[in-house]
């Protein structure tokens, strides 16, 4: 009995000690982690509209240059100077969520900038979806009639973009994430109160 008691006391002390340590580490880092996440989204949007900022003043620059429009649950960011728009997209890839930002010119059709902030695709294959050199292929494409990500993209068609070699399913997922979120945000934008 005393041996059992000793075991129980040991487990209780161990569990409590580690919970306390983890709780304090979480409390200490929570603010920084949240700041990093905000920085990731806002700095990507600022990059899209070629605004200059530093890690110290990005939040101020963002407030000054971007207007945040909330329509129902959707958030659309408008660049006050050019009228370009941006939003955060997310959806499921092959292995896990894919999340990022996409920016358009003021027509809300022509892609200006795409960045993937979070993905869990196969490193080196589907993972290419987060690489800037790949995402830059999307610049200039038009999403008005839906984007087509294909292995033999026709350079003359402005809604076709090259797929990732060896990662057909990631390419397909990425295509539908972009198309679905675009549709959603564009519809909300067109029907917003006081819209043009």
């Amino acid at each position: 009995m005393s041996r059992n008691m000793k075991t129980i006391v040991f487990v209780l002390i161990l569990g409590t000690a580690f919970s306390l340590v983890l709780m304090s580490i979480q409390a200490l880092t929570a603010e920084r982690i949240e700041m990093n996440q905000r920085f990731a989204v806002q700095s990507a949007i600022l990059d899209a509209f070629e605004e200059t900022y530093t890690i110290a003043n990005f939040a101020d620059v963002f407030d000054e240059t971007m207007e945040t429009v909330e329509i129902d649950d959707l958030v659309i960011y408008v660049h006050e100077e050019t009228g370009g728009v941006a939003f955060e997209f997310s959806g499921f890839g092959v292995w896990g969520p894919i999340r990022g930002i996409i920016a358009f010119e003021s027509d809300f059709e022509t892609i200006l900038y795409v960045r993937v902030l979070e993905q869990e695709e196969t490193p080196g294959l589907g993972g290419v979806v987060a690489e800037e050199s790949y995402l830059d292929n999307y610049v200039g494409a038009s999403m008005a009639d839906g984007l087509v990500v294909t292995h033999n993209a026709d350079p003359n068609l402005d809604n076709e973009v090259d797929a990732i070699t060896g990662a057909t399913r990631t390419s397909e997922s990425f295509q539908s994430i972009l198309n679905n979120t675009y549709e959603e945000h564009k519809t909300a934008w067109d029907n917003r109160e006081g819209g043009d």
């Binding site: 340590v21 983890l22 580490i25 920084r32 990093n36």
Partner: peptide, 9 residues
């Protein structure tokens, strides 16, 4: 978990 928090932060 500590490593995870530290990397994220």
């Amino acid at each position: 978990i500590i490593v995870q928090f530290m990397l994220q932060a």
